[in-house]
Design a protein around this nucleic acid. Structure first.
Length: 426
RNA sequence: GUGAGCGUGGCUCAGUUGGUUAGAGCACCGGGUUGUGGCCCCGGAGGUCGUGGGUUCGACUCCCAUCGCUCACCCCA
């Protein structure tokens, strides 16, 4: 039996974890500067939470959820996105009483049962940000600015596309208008778009098929159909982005896969991810909190895909020094001393390593080099008799004697630390 | 769910019209330096050729099935 990871599930190996840590650190730092607080929520929830929030007719709910019955027969689901669990926690703990506007973020795994491909896995990771209680259009711009800052500080090049999906007052009318338009040329559309006309008419606007695109000339635009409230909101969002000097492109064809979005939606896109284009996406979801049984507060948020970010970051991360000092010991007495010394060095803050397998000096030197140790301390019988060890500078290949008290590892560690401190000054 | 491509040591790949002990580079271990790394030289270990069946005197090579991986469609982060 050769057990392997499940399809679409990936191990993140030691070579790759540094990029992940950098991405997460930048995200946390930016969130902190934008006034976001971290929240951590479970990865499993009752299925109905996602059905109610994401929408019954969405692809995610219809065919992509990891849903199963627990031992009591309760239908549970591995979270396919982060917003629903965070809002559930927000409602459950009455967080709205803390302050009028809450800014929350969370980082963790999400699960969607899809065929894996480049930039798409069954378990993937997102940073997910939510702002609850604020309705102002500048807030939309500010949330986009937070996402934008994370990407900017990571040095990845993306572009921001924005759209407005209207609200309960104006979207249904537009949808009808569009469907009517599409049905008049249904025969000329590709099979996919014929199906989309019924399931997701907005998606037809996004079709890459040439014939479809030609048919779509003169199709109604959502931006022309917005009610006055949505129109002025969208105008102010753009104004906000302009004030922050964040470049964006209006994309009236942009469609989101979750039902709960209204008004502002946005995507951070790139062409460096194969067939995938979005690194991050989000939008406003006024009304969702109330639908989940909470107070009727507006909300806006976004998610960013971490493995997609790692692809954009190129994976190459400056590999730092793994080890300050390697202690090479020869002989039983020296090894015992080294064992205690290394422990003391670690307690005083150094990254210290030694060989545990009783290898020869040459092998130990190789280990030191492989760990990219700055220094190697060589301790053998000769040294212990002389009362001084050999301290080798691995970068310059120079070495010198270092007097040590071999019967007192604590004092010896102090002497080593002092010597390295002095050497670092020079 | 649909389609295409690919499965040979840990990794990247060779492998002639089917022919005898399946190779290389990198990585790993050891030696050259009886106690000194990164370079060089020498040696070593490591492979049920994804799996199962079939054709054949003989299969890594041909056929079928199956599993897995990758990319794309769909959709999405």
């Amino acid at each position: 039996m050769n057990v392997k990871a499940l399809k679409g599930f990936k191990d993140i190996l030691p070579d790759e974890t540094p990029v992940w840590r950098r991405i997460e650190a930048v995200a946390r730092e930016v969130f902190a500067r934008f006034g976001f607080e971290e929240i951590r929520v479970p990865v499993v929830e009752k299925t109905e939470l996602f059905v109610r929030s994401i929408g019954e007719a969405t692809d995610i709910v219809e065919k992509e959820m990891y849903t199963f019955a627990d031992r009591n027969g309760v239908s549970v689901t591995l979270r396919p996105e982060g917003t629903a669990p965070v809002l559930r926690a927000f409602v459950e703990h009455g967080l709205h009483v803390r302050k009028p506007v809450q800014r929350l973020y969370t980082i963790g795994p999400m699960f969607r049962y899809e065929r894996p491909q480049k930039g798409r896995l069954r378990q993937f990771h997102q940073v997910s940000a939510e702002v609850l209680g604020g309705a102002a259009p500048f807030l939309d711009a500010e949330v986009m600015a937070a996402a934008w800052s994370i990407l900017e500080e990571l040095g990845v090049d993306v572009s921001l596309e924005i759209n407005s999906l209207g609200c309960a007052a104006c979207r249904p009318a537009f949808r009808q208008e569009l469907v009517a338009f599409l049905q008049q040329r249904l025969a000329a559309l590709c099979p996919d778009c014929q199906r989309r006309t019924a399931t997701n008419p907005l998606r037809v606007l996004d079709c890459k098929n040439e014939a479809c695109r030609r048919q779509l000339a003169g199709a109604p635009s959502i931006l022309d159909a917005l009610c006055s409230g949505c129109r002025s909101h969208f105008h102010a969002v753009r104004q906000g982005l302009d004030l922050l000097h964040i470049p964006y492109r209006e994309n009236p064809f942009m469609v989101r896969g979750l039902d709960y979005y209204c008004r502002t939606t946005f995507e951070l896109v790139t062409d460096a991810l194969g067939a995938q284009s979005a690194v991050g996406a989000g939008g406003r979801y006024d009304g969702l909190l109330a639908r989940l049984g909470g107070p009727d507060l507006p909300g806006i948020g976004f998610g960013m895909g971490l493995e997609r970010l790692t692809l954009l970051c190129g994976g190459q991360e400056a590999s730092g020094r793994d080890c300050d000092l390697f202690v090479a010991a020869l002989g039983d007495r020296a090894r015992s001393f080294a064992f205690a010394l290394v422990h003391r060095l670690r307690r005083s803050g150094l990254r210290a390593l030694m060989d545990t397998e009783g290898k020869g000096l040459k092998s130990q030197m190789k280990q030191a080099a492989r760990a990219s140790a700055a220094w190697t301390l060589i301790v053998g019988d000769n040294e212990m008799e002389e009362g001084e060890a050999v301290l080798r500078d691995m970068r310059h290949g120079e070495q010198a004697a270092l007097p040590l008290t071999f019967d007192d590892p604590l004092a010896a560690a102090a002497a080593v630390v002092q010597r390295l401190g002095v050497a670092a000054e020079a």
